[in-house]
Computed example of a mutant assay.
Amino acid sequence: MSRYLTALIAIVLREALRFVHQRERFVAALVRPLVWLLVFAAGFRAALGLSIIPPYQTYISYETYIVPGLCGMIMLFNGMQSSLSLIYDREMGSMKLLLTSPLPRWWLLTCKLLGATAISIIQVYAFLAIAAALGIKMPVAGYLTVLPALIVAGLMLGSLGLLLSSFIKQLENFAGVMNFVIFPMFFLSSALYPLWKMAESSELLYNICLVNPFTHAIELIRFALYVEFNGPALFWTVLAAAVFTVAALWGYSPRITGPRGRG
């Protein structure tokens, strides 16, 4: 058991040190949602009127509505960033050293996933602090109750990045695949507009939004920020996380990658 714990601490610390030394990564992770919050929201505010929908008990500003979606954006991009780091490690050879250790591959990859999730949560709380400083505040208890939702959402999106990294063989191919995944998931969700707005414009797009796991992750975060429990969102997010994780572990299995990992 001590070997497993040592591996967990070592891998998580490695991810943390990599994050600390890449300060521009932290800044970029905050600049992206802040641009949406401060710039794009000004234009969307007039175009997208919001009705009173759960978990909100009254009319809210558009900026307040998109904060959970922007938290999800941070976690989505960080999940893809962790996928990029895995591909880089594989090309540099450090992934081979990791996968040939005596510990099971599933545990080593789970440690990478936990490290990436922890980094995502730190970035989200930094963004929520900036949003509060700008006057967009959530219930005080919501900053605590959202933590389990962030963990579940982070694991789901991190496992998606892990799955992508298991099948992308070259670093040069990552950008195209990332854009193919990130932007459809983000825009075909409830991150920027409520689903009833999507239903008014297109029934097909509405149905796509419903099956998008990112939508359920956003709603899980949204309800948790207002100290409310969303059972269906939790179920679908956990289910997606389980499917992505199993598929990623299969992609990294020795039969697929070879005994020393794909490189």
Rank of each mutant, 00 (worst) to 15 (best):
A132L: 03
A133D: 00
A133Y: 02
L134A: 11
G135R: 07
V140N: 00
V140H: 01
T145E: 11
T145P: 13
L147V: 15
L147D: 09
L147Q: 06
L147C: 12
P148I: 12
A149D: 06
A149N: 06
L150Y: 06
I151Q: 02
I151C: 12
I151T: 09
V152W: 01
G154V: 08
G154A: 10
G154Q: 04
G154T: 08
L157C: 04
L160S: 03
L160K: 01
G161Y: 08
G161M: 11
G161L: 10
L162H: 04
L163F: 15
L164F: 13
S165A: 15
S165F: 11
S166M: 10
F167Y: 13
F167H: 10
I168T: 08
K169G: 01
L171A: 05
E172A: 09
E172Q: 06
F174S: 08
F174D: 09
F174R: 06
A175S: 13
A175E: 13
A175N: 12
G176W: 03
G176L: 10
V177D: 11
V177C: 10
M178E: 15
N179M: 13
N179D: 14
N179C: 11
F180L: 15
F180P: 05
F183V: 13
F183E: 09
F183P: 01
M185R: 03
M185T: 09
F186W: 07
F186L: 15
F187W: 08
F187E: 07
L188W: 02
S189G: 08
A191R: 00
A191S: 12
L192P: 02
Y193V: 15
Y193M: 15
P194R: 03
L195E: 13
W196K: 06
M198N: 00
A199P: 00
E200Y: 04
E200Q: 13
E203A: 14
E203D: 07
L204W: 05
L204T: 08
L205Q: 01
L205N: 03
L205V: 04
Y206F: 15
N207I: 05
N207A: 09
N207F: 04
L210K: 09
V211N: 05
V211Q: 03
N212M: 14
N212C: 13
N212R: 11
P213N: 07
P213G: 09
F214W: 05
F214Q: 06
F214L: 14
T215A: 11
T215G: 10
H216Y: 11
H216P: 08
H216S: 14
A217T: 03
A217R: 01
I218T: 14
I218H: 04
I218A: 09
L220A: 14
L220T: 09
L220W: 08
I221T: 07
I221V: 15
R222W: 08
F223R: 02
F223Q: 04
Y226S: 00
Y226Q: 05
V227D: 05
E228F: 00
E228P: 00
N230L: 09
N230M: 05
N230I: 05
G231C: 04
P232W: 06
P232S: 08
A233E: 08
A233L: 10
L234V: 05
L234T: 03
F235H: 03
W236Q: 10
V238R: 01
L239W: 01
A240G: 05
A241W: 02
A242E: 03
A242H: 01
V243C: 07
F244C: 05
T245M: 12
T245Q: 02
V246L: 14
A247E: 04
A248Q: 06
